[in-house]
Amino acid sequence: MNSLTEKEKKLNTVLNKLKNLSFKNPELDNNIEELKNKKNQLEIEKKEIEDKYKILKEDYELLSKKIEEIKNNQKLEERKQIEFSEKIDELNQETDTLLEEIDKWQT
């Protein structure tokens, strides 16, 4: 019977140790906390990058519009230049015609 009592005591001791046993792993907790911190940092960086991208996109759109305006202005200037050249050609022709007429009258 003594043996049975000793076994019961030992079993109770082991059960108490098992009850007090902690299943928490501090290293795992530290790793989880570190991962949470990294995740937060990455989210902050992501937000910053998205903000910068948005600004760059707006700048790109603005510059694209300006370039388009410049191209349109160049086309307009080219047309004006062509019209001006045509007018000069017309005036030259008229001048030549007038000179011919003057020559006819003088002879």
Rank of each mutant, 00 (worst) to 15 (best):
L42W: 05
S64C: 05
E61A: 01
E48T: 15
K71Q: 06
I55V: 06
I55Q: 04
K54V: 06
D59G: 05
S64Y: 01
K24F: 06
K71N: 07
L28C: 12
N25P: 00
K54E: 01
K66I: 02
K38D: 00
L42R: 14
Q41G: 09
I67T: 12
S64I: 11
S64P: 01
N72A: 03
L56K: 11
E45L: 14
L56Y: 06
P26N: 11
K52I: 12
K36F: 06
I44D: 04
L56M: 04
K66T: 04
I67L: 12
K71S: 00
I67M: 04
N37V: 12
N25R: 08
Y53V: 10
E69L: 07
Q41K: 15
E45W: 13
L62D: 03
E27T: 11
K71M: 00
K36L: 05
L62F: 10
E45V: 07
N25V: 09
N72Y: 07
K46N: 12
Q41M: 06
K54M: 03
L35E: 04
Y60S: 13
F23M: 08
K71W: 01
P26Y: 14
E48A: 15
Y60L: 08
E45Q: 15
I55E: 00
L42D: 02
D29R: 11
K65D: 01
D59E: 14
N72W: 00
K66E: 02
L42F: 13
K24C: 03
K65F: 04
E43K: 15
I70R: 05
N31S: 10
N72Q: 06
E27M: 09
L62G: 03
E34T: 12
K36G: 01
K46M: 08
I70K: 08
E33N: 13
I67R: 05
D51L: 15
E61R: 10
E45M: 13
K38Q: 10
I67V: 12
E45H: 13
N31L: 15
E58Q: 13
K65Q: 09
E34I: 05
S22Y: 06
K65M: 01
K65S: 06
K71P: 04
K52D: 02
L28K: 15
E48I: 15
L42M: 11
L62V: 05
K47S: 09
E68P: 03
N72I: 07
I49V: 09
E68N: 09
Q41R: 15
K47I: 11
E50R: 10
D29G: 01
K66M: 12
I55S: 02
E50C: 02
F23I: 10
N25I: 04
K66C: 01
Y60T: 09
Y60F: 12
L35D: 02
E69I: 04
L42Q: 10
L56G: 00
E50D: 11
L35F: 07
K57W: 03
K46Y: 11
E48N: 14
N30F: 07
I55T: 03
N72M: 00
N40Y: 13
